[in-house]
Design a protein around this nucleic acid. Sequence first.
DNA 1: CGATGTTTAGTTAACC
DNA 2: GGTTAACTAAACATCG
Length: 260
Amino acid sequence: MPRPTRESYGDQKPPFSYIALTAMAIWSSPERMLPLSEIYRFITDRFPYYRRNTQRWQNSLRHNLSFNDCFVKVPRRPDRPGKGAYWTLHPQAFDMFENGSLLRRRKRFKLHKGEKDSLNAELAALASFNRAFMARQAGGTPGTAMSGGSMFVTPGAMCSRPSPDLIDGPDTAALLPSGTRPRRAFTIDALLEPEPRSSSPCSPPPPPLQPHYPMPLPAPYILAAQRYHAELLAGLQQSCLPPLWTWRDTSQFSHYTLNS
DNA sequence: CGATGTTTAGTTAACC
DNA sequence: GGTTAACTAAACATCG
């Protein structure tokens, strides 16, 4: 039986699960993360089947995003306002498909409670940073308002303190690779300081993590926000972690695979 | 208000 | 037959 090509799917339902479709969409984007609307667009652009009954499959897709730990909701950067968050893949979920084939999933990806708590704390800190950022910017008092940053937690404190009910292995409380987790306090002031030069233990850094920001002369706040966001994403999508999703044959969407 | 996100629950199919 | 993953439906909350 011949391999199905992108075209041959036509109005037929593609053999991919929603998880696979979503992973495709996310990993085909330059920054490895997309808002919901862009995930929709990726799917409808490539698979005509999903141009019908959008209510049904989009509900299922949203359900999958929320239900599965393999998808991580990253708050929008404050300089990119809009509706909804960005969605990315959890680094530990990269190998959830057998042999990298998106046609077959190895097992359900589930985070332990400690890992989940840790990640949520990290993301909550980011959201908090964003809110403070906006408030501060609205206040128009650069460098003074909200100084001290007592409302923020340091990443170290956040990630190294296991919850009482956490008994798992050594890395359960440290979701993000320790080398790339943000090293400074999650405060605007700290982030406004010049970037400390440190060589990443993993090389080279993936290009998508340094997107260009189409902004006219970013203010220091914007720079701080960008830096913060980049650090978090660098942790989430570490270059040490293997492979990137790709497709071997760009004309055949049936064969998304992992680089090896 | 509509898009987005969360949660629960029922059905189906594949697998051991 | 039990377990698991995928799919679907639906209720509900939140947010811009």
